Simulated scan of single mutants.
Amino acid sequence: MPFDLSLLQQRHSVPSRQLGEPAPDEATLHELLEAAIRVPDHGKLVPFRLIRLQGEAKLVFGRRVAEIAQKNQPEMSDAKLEKDRLRYTFAPLVIAVIARLDALSKVPEIEQKLSAGTVAHNILLGAFALGYGAQWLTGWAAYDREVAALLGLADNEQVIGFVHLGTPQTDVPDRDRPALGDLLSSWTP
């Protein structure tokens, strides 16, 4: 089967503020997510799950995240609070990628997190392949236990990222990429 690397060579993130309707329809989203969960998974632990934020739910989520921010940092500026409140409103669909860590497994937690991270990356690649835009964001909310509770996460779960999905509303130029020569070396004994 011939393979073309152009997908990997051209993929880039589209800022969430530049993502609008339409999001993938239900059938396309199902197909995208089915493909995205085909990741390396040492021990077959399935150390990930997905939470959809869409419609009114993502608006309420943003408001509650801002409330948590204000409670934890009462001196936070109104502009920063507004940014937190609006963060999830731009793209029509946000998928929270969650790592489910099994501390009793022989598989190191870092491998479990990396498996969940590849799910997020696959969503980015799949969205691009289907003609959609996507951006993987974290921010403080991804690491906050009150936000984790808001999402209904168990103690062994954590947010890997919020993948914002939609249709690019403008052309987004690619950013400068590192030179492979600066990154690749050869080990010699």
Rank of each mutant, 00 (worst) to 15 (best):
A148R: 14
G20D: 02
S6Y: 02
G133N: 10
D176G: 11
T167P: 01
Q9N: 15
G55Y: 12
A129L: 08
R17P: 00
V39T: 05
A91Q: 03
E26F: 04
E75G: 11
Q135N: 09
E111Q: 13
L151K: 00
L81H: 05
P189C: 06
E82D: 10
E67M: 03
S6H: 05
K80T: 01
G43C: 14
V97C: 10
Y88C: 06
V97W: 12
S186C: 04
D41Y: 08
Q73S: 04
L5T: 09
L81Q: 08
A179M: 05
E82C: 11
A57Y: 03
M1Q: 04
F128A: 14
D102L: 06
H121T: 10
A36S: 13
R85K: 12
V94T: 15
R145Q: 13
P108W: 08
T89Q: 13
S77N: 08
R17E: 03
Q73E: 04
A23R: 07
L8R: 04
F3C: 05
D176F: 03
Q70S: 12
L45A: 01
F128Y: 14
D41R: 15
D171A: 14
K44S: 06
I98Q: 02
L81F: 04
V97E: 03
R49D: 06
I123R: 05
H164A: 03
A116M: 07
K106W: 07
G131D: 08
A179I: 08
G117S: 10
S185L: 12
R63I: 00
